[in-house]
């Protein structure tokens, strides 16, 4: 085969290969779209974050408005200190309520923000004061079991 034909085929091959990589990055991965516009930081302290992970979404009314950036344990209060990167397009009132929710029964956990009625909004670096911990399924079940066990004295021996 002549050299020029080989060059063309190699060129086509490289283009297809990089096209596949681009497809993976844009269509399969999270590089295309849903990028946070010049994000600002917010913090929130939770008693228990359950299974919340770094890069989990922060949602308000179901819309993704930010991502979890960092999770550390505060050694003074023994609470989880969650740092979030928020989209600059959205500002939230001072008395916003942050909860840890689960999408679906077994889905991933995310932070839900419910805006309050305050006039002033949270500035970059501020801390969300009103938070609610994740619901730990095991605790819920054990509470339920405990209360039913107390109710029926027959099964008290178990």
């Amino acid at each position: 085969m002549k050299r020029t034909t080989i060059d063309i085929w190699v060129g086509i091959f490289v283009v297809i290969g990089f096209g596949a990589l681009l497809f993976l990055a844009m269509r399969v991965g999270n590089l295309g779209g849903s990028k946070l516009r010049d994000p600002y930081e917010l913090q929130a302290k939770f008693d228990n974050i359950g299974g919340l992970k770094v890069r989990a979404p922060v949602k308000s009314a179901g819309v993704v408005v930010g991502r979890v950036e960092k999770i550390v344990l505060d050694s003074q209060t023994y609470q989880a200190n969650v740092t979030m990167q928020m989209d600059a397009r959205y500002a939230f009132p001072q008395d916003t309520f942050a909860t840890i929710n689960t999408s679906g029964l077994l889905g991933e956990q995310y932070i839900g923000l419910e805006p309050g009625g305050d006039e002033k909004t949270l500035a970059a670096g501020e801390v969300i004061k009103k938070t609610q911990s994740a619901v730990v399924l095991e605790k819920l079940i054990s509470q339920f079991m405990f209360s039913t066990a107390e109710g029926s004295s027959v099964k008290a021996g178990n």
């Binding site: 297809i16 290969g17 990089f18 096209g19 596949a20 990589l21 497809f23 993976l24 269509r27 399969v28």
Partner: peptide, 15 residues
């Protein structure tokens, strides 16, 4: 040179 391009292509076709 060929291997990463082929692997990316494989994944893309798989998706």
């Amino acid at each position: 040179i060929s291997m990463p391009l082929l692997a990316a292509l494989f994944s893309a076709m798989g998706v």
